[in-house]
Design a protein around this nucleic acid. Sequence first.
RNA 1: GGGCGAUUGGCGCAGUUGGCUAGCGCGCAUGCAUGACACGCAUGAGGUCACAGGUUCGAGCCCUGUAUCGCCCACCA
Length: 1123
Amino acid sequence: MADLPKTYQPAEHERGIWGLWTGADAFTADPRRVDADRPGYSIVIPPPNVTAALHLGHAFNNTLQDVLTRTHRMRGYEAMWIPGTDHAGIATQTVVEKRLLNEEGKRRTDFTREDFIARVQAWKDEYERRITDQLKAMGCSCDWSRQRFTMDDICARAVREAFFILFRDGLIYRGKRLVNWDPASQTALADDEVEMQDVAGRFYYLRYPLVHAPANPGDMADVQEVTWSELAARGYPGASGMPDDENAWVTVATTRPETYLGDTGVAINPHDPRAKPLRGLMVQLPLVGRVIPIVEDDYVVMPLEIPGARLPERDEDAPIDPKAKFATGFLKVTPAHDPNDFEIGRRHGLDAINIMAPDASISDHHGWSDVGDARIFVGLSREKARELVMREFDARGLLEKSVPYEHAVGHSYRTHVPIEPYLSDQWYVRVTDDRLVGFAQRALRPEQRTTSTHMPMRGVSGDGEMAFFPERYARSYEQWHDNLRDWCISRQLWWGHRIPVWTREFGTWKNLIGEADGPGEELITTLLALRDREPNAPLAYFLASKSDMSRPLLEADEIQDCTDLVCVVCVRRSGPLETTRVKPRDFEAWLAKHGFAQDPDVLDTWFSSALWPLSTMGWPEPEQSPETAGLLDAFNPTSLLSTAREIITLWVSRMAMFNRYFTSPDAGRTPGRIPFQHVYIHSVIQDGHGQRMSKSLGNGVDPLDIVESHGADALRWTLTSIATGTQDVRLPVDLICPHTGQTFAPTFIQIASGHHVPAPVQDSPFAPGKKMVTSFGAASGLAKPTPETPLARNTSSKFDAGRNVCNKLWNAGRFAMGMLTRGEPAPIPASTLRASERPLVDRWMLSRLARSARACDEATNAYQFATLNQALYDVLWRDFCDWYLEAIKPTAEGDAHQRAVLRDVLDAILRLLHPVIPFVTETIWQGLRELPRTTSIEGLGLDNDASMLCLAGWPAIDDALIDERAERDFARVQALAEAIRNVRATHKVKPQRRITLHLPDALRGEIEASGGLDLVRTLAGVEHVVAIGADTGTGSTPTPFTFEGQALALSDLADAVDAGAERERLMKLVGDLDKSIAALTARLSNPGYADKAPAKLVQQTRDELARQQAEREQAAAALGSLA
RNA sequence: GGGCGAUUGGCGCAGUUGGCUAGCGCGCAUGCAUGACACGCAUGAGGUCACAGGUUCGAGCCCUGUAUCGCCCACCA
């Protein structure tokens, strides 16, 4: 062992150890091994997006998952951690599009769909490989033989099946709805993909002229203005004060005046005193000329006051709606461009007029025809249109005022442009159906459900066993479901799972049956044959009116009356299919032959993610592939999902819905299996300033940089150490020069939004004469790093702690193994040794080990990784290294049994540490394995037949090894050694100097009886132990000190004792004791204390006071004798 | 607007049913090449636990309020 280097060099071992593990297929799970004695433990990785390499947040999450996977593997579970990546539809397509534009100057539309997808596929291949390499470098013990990608064949099969079942069961529909439209990427976004940003906008108050309803609706020539005097006659409050002959108006307040072009109504609260006088009147939109009704709707907030009117009594307790401050009481209704207005419009039968092109410019080609004088707006961007609308209204005296207003506006999470609520045809999953939302809601473990009843889903008893850690996140989960809306799943992208729906417009029923002459007959017969939806049906279909495809036409007369009939078919699988009722055929080709066209859109990326626990395990037919055979039965539900909190809604909920629905035992009537038993929500890693780490802020830390500089284990150690239960954790970021290894505090520049961005200063010490950048310097506007430019990397000194621990363990192992190879072999071969037969220090070490193992287990089971980390640190560094190794230095060589204890203790500690720092522990363990083990310690429960630590058994340490007596006795030894060391330090006694300890006889007797006296000698550098007051014959004056309230002394400290240092030491001691004594006395003299506090506690306080008083007396006496 | 988290020595954090003198790592000071480790060893300094009230014999912990920082959610009048 002497040839091992003094410091642990991770790079020299990690690759070899990884080869050892993977060469033995150590991480490959076998579902056939799962049984009652060997339960399954499974995790499916939250698949990282293939958009970019992994960041520290991924490293964090995956470290924790690996800790759990490795622990359970060692505990005897059949552990399976499935790795994989997510195609991340819009995000990946966006980065590839950007790159193509930058590097080749090409746009997506310059490619065919197939060619473009091939380019994205190439990107995906590259990043999938990089991500995989990163996970492996971090030591993630995934089952790499089962790696999945959300768009591979196995996952695609699951997506097809899931879509088909939902379609067949009426849980998927085509809806003309307002979607969150991203005008830049021209796709619909899910609610969750919209980021709210505060925007400094304005409130505009627009006047809409009032008119009489034309006799013939639509006859604009017939429109008559309403004057103020007419209004006054109708009893309209405030009208009498207005100029009689002028055209009266109502004022609407809006932040988006340009949408007035699409207004189809003005709404007023029915309780508004102005509502009644306005009945029968309409308003006319300036320029457009459109005459629109005034509708009464409770949704409208009334203003705080209406001139000339008394507002209806309001409930004192009801909170004032903040909108009331801005409200005029009139709400413009633009059903095609505002979700609320869409609902109002639907309630009152108002038209939805879409005034925008997909790029959000004003357009009369997408549903708007009555342009009138508003043609001046056509073709303008929404921003330009807004300005022009204001100018035009102002010119006509119709702009009452505008006031500044800061409000939250949805932005695309990819392109960061404001979202446009946009009317279009999209596919939806009816997640508001109880079979989905209810199943997911009730998946929660009953004790994590709240009992409030005002929310519709609350109070329903849970039937599931899904639990959140930390528990508080169960509420986020619940609240999301309480406010759920249907899920828009279609995306206007090329990169993703193509929607497996084929449609054909027939116009009329006659057209449809008219085809009966030729292939149409076959079409109809086939469709009719499948009408009863047999379980294995290869396709499902419905007929609908093209203008409203949200509802299938079911009645015969509906179908026959329809003039825009559409047939919508969902095909279950690609390739040949058959059932008992129809002949086998390739239905996709068959539909194409019949004039059907496949929907061009792809599915929201979360649709495939939602199936992840099923698809990775081969659902619906795992036996179709050797990779997935047997997995579902053995490993679903999975044991744990570990993820970030912002994804609870996007992902966790949907996995719960899908897993439960698709595993339903009775075709969706009752919920099936939950996808995972536990959901662990990890913290978000921020930099030292509380900023979220991100590429664009330049404050991210690359896990591979840390692996390189500190080692994978150090990375993992530090990450577990910061995994407290809080929602954010901070990791201060430093810059490091990769050439010199020097670190620097980053400097900061201010950017517009008020965030601090770390950016290096011009004259950075490691870049003489060069403009320096961080690894993400481009984001801060400084030079882009190139391989030639020496560039700084982001790191954190926090990782030093991890490196130090690995090094400490390395040296402890090196030293211990050195001891194990010295001395005579154990006399008793292959036997067990009882702790009770061993001296104090061994019994103490074994007891501490037993306690630590218990603490580790408890922490791991509760997902308290920082606590686990601390327990490991304490047993390794404080107990084993600081005390045990020091204490046995003189004895181990001559005591074969002690070496047996040392060996097993080291082995057990390596096992406990292995899940967190797998590489260094395995490296040492492989060395330890070489050494003969003839004697094992009873109760440690270390199996002996594993060839590698990652497959070795978890220590099954018997609680009988917990020895309170030994812990008490050894604690006394420690306290005495520390008291002696304190004196030694004050007097600057050389470490090598052996000194003499003067002990009272009784104390000496006790310590000797416990077996601790020799330990005190070793640990405190004591050569001779004599009775207090004894003459040592050296002539030196003993230096007194106190221990447990008794007077002890040390002599032979030096050739001459420094009285000044001694006085200082004693004075501080007396001072400290005085403070403490005062506090204890005060507590005891409190009349309530003795009466109400537990007697045991009171007695403890009294004893402590007595001890301290005695100690103070001793110290004071010593001080006196000094003078 | 709703919900949640945080506030403990210079920095990052523990502190799980209220109870000995509030712990840990980094940093700091002093000493040390001592049979593993200077990525180390020993000893030490450093905290009115954000603020104000309250409950209690006793509060970092429980209650009420306030302030600051941050996160998530929310249909842009």
